[in-house]
Design a protein around this nucleic acid. Structure first.
Length: 428
RNA sequence: GUCCCCAUCGUCUAGCCAGGUCUAGGACAUCGGAUUUUCGAUCCGACGGCAGGGGUUCAAAUCCCCUUGGGGACGCCA
């Protein structure tokens, strides 16, 4: 029997990070066993379900590379089926009507056990469970019932979902039994919490996958991080591609403890990927970053731009940090570190040293970083200065920053004209 | 309140199921050092944990119980 798993989002909001993690685990398991990953849309709430939310969710899943093999299937297409199945249960005398609604009668005093693939055996006494609505008064199905009917209909063999569904499981098992359908395997993965231990919500910021996409995270990094939250590859590896992960992914190895989302580790991983990926794969992200900041990439010499990116890719963890460091390459009204200015430019000696440098710079025909460095070091030597005494003021004057890529490379890329112009402006 | 899940450094984890090789290993973060014109990257190092209490056992992070703590569910929401 082939293994089939599903991800079943409700299009009543954006794709939540926690849901994305659930989707990822389902996807990985499907890949691991060569099974089928089904996408089902739980849109029984006709009022709150919106096409835009669905589009966003689908786009986010695609961005993460979590392509589905079948679907999307829509629950709103199956209202007839739910009613039919509920009628079957009613006919068997296992349910009763209350107005237009069909209510499942829960047999009391029974112990239902779940052989959870993550948690092991979980038992619940049905005394804890009230009678369950199958079909609501308005004719729409209740969540737990629609879920069971569809999972059965789609021949789902393994249900991998969040821990918050544990309490739904015994109810659903009763429905499977009432319908005379084989109960699938269940795997409940522990929930992801915010740094403060509270449920990850809008309050924490950054709970939507789309925000990470927008802020310059790589899908590889997000996947990798989400995977590490609850699952560990063999050995001491941390950085792992999803295809590698799929090879050794086992549900039984998923941790059963709740986890806290840690943005720092995600950023670290993102930096790892930015540094290690092929240039051609990260280049578009930098272009996007320029466009986002109203800088037309077409106006920049491509070779120059590539060199700039090479200089800065190792200094950022998220693409959105790029222009914080490198804006001065693309515009004259770049941001200026005021504290740095006071330290490296405002003093009289800073200006003297800068003047010295300016005089030399004007005479350089071959404005290469090697040549500039040679001139700077010789100049420092001649005037009994440390190179840093000229370097820091220059960096401040031409970039407005106290930190960044190697000064001489920066000067070469900026070009003689701009460098001189900015230094002159600083001295006046 | 009732029921359910969970408990190793601040965080994610290895070890737990099959008790000894654990004076508990790794990663992020933090702090120091090396390197560098600065930042970053890199390399070295430090800090830091088996929630508490009872058992069982020659031996417990590992097995059992209790307490405490955290989380979830108790909707004609999904």
């Amino acid at each position: 029997m082939s293994i089939r798993v599903r991800f079943a989002p409700s299009p009543t909001g954006f794709l939540h990070l926690g849901s994305a993690r659930t989707a990822l685990f389902n996807w990985l398991y499907a890949k691991h066993v060569g099974g089928t990953f089904v996408l089902r849309v739980e849109d029984t709430d006709l009022v709150r379900s919106k096409k835009e939310f669905l589009d966003d969710i689908l786009n986010d899943l695609k961005w993460m590379g979590l392509e589905w093999d079948e679907g999307p299937f829509f629950q709103s297409d199956n209202f007839g089926l739910y009613k039919e199945k509920a009628q079957n249960i009613l006919d068997k005398g296992l349910a009763y009507k209350e107005g237009e609604a069909i209510i499942f009668k829960v047999e009391k005093g029974r112990v239902i056990s779940i052989n959870d693939l993550v948690h092991g055996k979980i038992t619940v006494n049905t005394d804890q469970i009230k009678d369950q609505v199958l079909i609501k008064s308005d004719g729409s199905p209740a969540y737990n019932f629609a879920c069971v009917v569809d999972d059965a209909n789609l021949k789902i063999t393994h249900i991998i979902r969040g821990d918050d569904h544990i309490s739904n499981t015994p109810k659903q098992i009763m429905f499977y039994e009432a319908l005379g359908i084989e109960v699938p395997e269940f795997a409940h993965i522990p929930l992801m919490m915010g740094q403060d231990g509270a449920k990850l919500s809008k309050r924490h910021g950054g709970v939507a996958v789309s925000e990470y996409r927008r802020d310059g995270f790589l899908p590889e990094a997000l996947n990798n991080y989400l995977l590490l939250l609850g699952w560990q590859p063999q050995g001491d590896r941390e950085v792992i591609s999803m295809s590698e992960a799929a090879k050794e992914f086992e549900i039984s190895k998923i941790n059963n403890t709740q986890v806290k989302f840690d943005i720092d580790k995600l950023k670290w991983l993102n930096g790892e990927y930015i540094r290690s990926k092929d240039f051609k794969d990260i280049y578009p992200y930098f272009i996007k970053e320029l466009e986002k900041n109203n800088i037309d990439p077409q106006t920049i010499d491509e070779e120059k731009l590539k060199k700039i990116i090479e200089l800065y890719r190792v200094r950022i963890k998220v693409f959105s940090e790029f222009l914080d460091l490198a804006d001065f390459f693309f515009k004259d009204d770049y941001s200026v570190d005021e504290k740095g200015r006071r330290k490296h430019l405002d003093k009289e000696e800073n200006k003297e040293n800068l003047k010295l440098a300016l005089n030399e710079l004007e005479g350089i025909d071959d404005f290469s970083h090697e040549k500039i460095e040679e001139v700077y070091r010789a100049l420092a030597d001649k005037n009994n200065l440390k190179p840093a005494n000229i370097i820091h003021p220059t960096r401040m004057a031409i970039s407005g920053k106290t930190k960044g890529a190697g000064l001489f490379e920066v000067m070469e890329l900026l070009g003689k004209e701009t460098v001189i112009k900015r230094i002159e402006k600083t001295l006046n």
